[in-house]
């Protein structure tokens, strides 16, 4: 499958990936409105860790053997057998955060339900990758158990 791969050496700590992720997962899909006016405020599913000297953007690895899916106590977290995308069915999630407690890269955000990267399934190209000014994020085929 295709995954988002971060190139740490190129990351500028500008956090635009967070901004555009939040916008892509907002109601209005508008940068300004998503940031200032929406309630509940949309949440970025990618996080830039570190500081200006050394930073890297972290989001879901859509693992081949996903710890979050194996631990989910309701069946809400699942891996699509065709696309390989790991996502949370928010209508069935009870927000217990067992998935968050076992994700080894720490990419699930707490909320009313678990919130995580869905690789922008609807548009086909992740907003973080599209909007990274320095190509520190790339969307590439990496193999794995779903093609």
């Amino acid at each position: 499958m295709k995954k988002v791969i971060a190139r740490e050496a190129l990351c500028l700590d500008c956090k635009l990936c967070e901004v555009f992720c939040r916008t892509a997962h907002s109601k209005s899909k508008d940068v300004v409105r998503a940031h200032l006016y929406e309630d509940p405020a949309p949440v970025a599913r990618i996080t830039v860790e570190g500081d200006i000297l050394d930073s890297v953007a972290v989001n879901c690895r859509h693992c081949d053997d996903p710890a979050c899916v194996n631990a989910c106590i309701t069946g809400a977290m699942h891996k699509d057998p065709e696309t390989g995308i790991v996502s949370c069915d928010e209508s069935r999630c009870i927000g217990c955060m067992t998935c968050l407690a076992v994700c080894p890269v720490g990419c699930i955000k707490p909320g009313r339900t678990a919130v995580k990267c869905d690789l922008c399934q609807e548009t086909g190209e992740p907003a973080c990758v599209k909007n990274c000014p320095n190509r520190a994020l790339v969307y590439v085929e990496v193999g794995g158990d779903a093609q």
């Binding site: 971060a6 740490e8 860790e49 050394d54 890269v105």
Partner: peptide
């Protein structure tokens, strides 16, 4: 906690496999 706890090599391995 975060991946910045780890050395760059370990972190890159975790993120890129």
């Amino acid at each position: 906690p975060g991946l910045m706890l780890f050395s760059r090599e370990v972190r890159t391995e975790k993120l890129t496999g």
